[in-house]
Design a protein around this nucleic acid. Structure first.
Lengths: 154, 154
DNA sequence: TTCAATTAGTGGCATATGCCACTTTTGTCG
DNA sequence: CGACAAAAGTGGCATATGCCACTAATTGAA
């Protein structure tokens, strides 16, 4: 039993993580489907909601996401009128983001659907277990891993 | 401390998972960059490698990935000559996949880069911890969650 | 004050993933 | 055998993410 490995299981931490993400993502996507939001969009809107008119860079950092990727992901939400942006008063480079009333309403609607999925998940794995898993994932996310530079540059 | 939450941390299992996936993905991507492969492509090639001329559906199932998504993801690898497909002898609906010699060589090259990242990760979190995390993620991935149908359809 | 370095975003390009509609093959019945 | 349901992929369309090159706005020196 040391040799054989169930198909699709590698020792790669990254591959395992992505596989789980695909699986869980589909579940939450299904749950949120009635709202028309993807689980990723829900997450983004929620993040904006709990922040105070955050700058794009701030959101990107919080979600550990590329700034340009955030910009792209934001577009459909802006197009659909859930989110709006505005320039920072003091630094015109900075673009801040906030939910529109429509976005707030959509978030409320989605939250109900989300909680069903969330509850169902926690019923299956146990709330405690789930919390531990999230903690472990947050720890991994914040490891701040870096490949050693080929040349230790000065 | 019950109210305040570090920016970017929600209780959503899915959001937390995706966030970690983005973070770790970048790390492995950086490590594999010299090979020209993304960590996702590496994972896919590896999966093909450890399988025996698997059918597309088999791969998709193992990776818990949509069949059409697999088809799309496979394209660049076929275009670059790392992978080739061929019809199954007995069932012409089935398309099987295998690595080309070039693909094998590329996998060998990438494996060296991958192991550096993998080792570095495990040095940080501990091999044991990493194994536990992978087990937990595999368990989540295989939960086979499903949203209860709105109407229990006859 | 003026100009170089830094910071915050944007746009283009490429891959990653999913869903849905559709085509080709099989497999099943009557 | 012929009509139909099921299985395996393909293509189109849309979102998710990243990297890179570039622009605009600031900051920090000389």
């Amino acid at each position: 039993m040391t040799e054989a490995r169930k198909p699709g299981f590698s020792d790669c931490n990254n591959a395992t993580l992505r596989r789980a993400a695909r699986s869980l993502g589909r579940f939450y996507d299904d749950a949120l489907a009635p709202s028309g939001l993807k689980s990723t969009q829900f997450g983004l809107i929620f993040q904006i909601h709990i922040s105070d008119e955050p700058a794009m860079g701030t959101i990107a950092e919080a979600l550990i996401m590329d700034l340009s990727a955030l910009g792209h992901t934001l577009k459909p939400l802006i197009r659909d009128g859930y989110v709006e942006t505005f320039a920072d008063k003091d630094d015109r480079r900075v673009k801040r983001v906030r939910l529109t009333p429509r976005g707030q309403a959509k978030l409320d609607e989605a939250l109900k659907l989300w909680s069903v999925a969330q509850r169902q998940f926690e019923d299956k794995v146990g709330a405690e277990q789930a919390a531990k898993l999230r903690a472990a994932l947050d720890a991994v996310a914040d490891l701040n891993l870096e490949m050693p530079a080929a040349a230790p540059s000065l």
